[in-house]
Amino acid sequence: MFLITCPYCGEAREEQEFSYAGEALIKRAPLDSSDAEWGDYLFNRNNTKGPTLEQWQHTLGCRKLFMVERNNVTNDILAIKTFESLRSDS
């Protein structure tokens, strides 16, 4: 059970306060994609071992979603990013 620092609330809190919300940065396939492309978007995942970028929601706090880079073997949290930061980068 790890600690996550919510970038909005600014505090390290128990993982139980948060909800895992899947791999981050999955691009939604367009309506005119083929069945195969749509299926890939809908179901296929990188499911990488080691450092991964994932979405978490501060469910029992501010309810904001943000991104956590976590080594999913050691549970070490390497970075925490907001979606806003992603948009200002690009």
Partner: peptide, 13 residues
């Protein structure tokens, strides 16, 4: 509730 928030915050900010 979580479904709406997820779509709003990640896909349609």
């Amino acid at each position: 509730y979580a479904h709406l928030e997820r779509w709003h915050q990640t896909e349609w900010p």
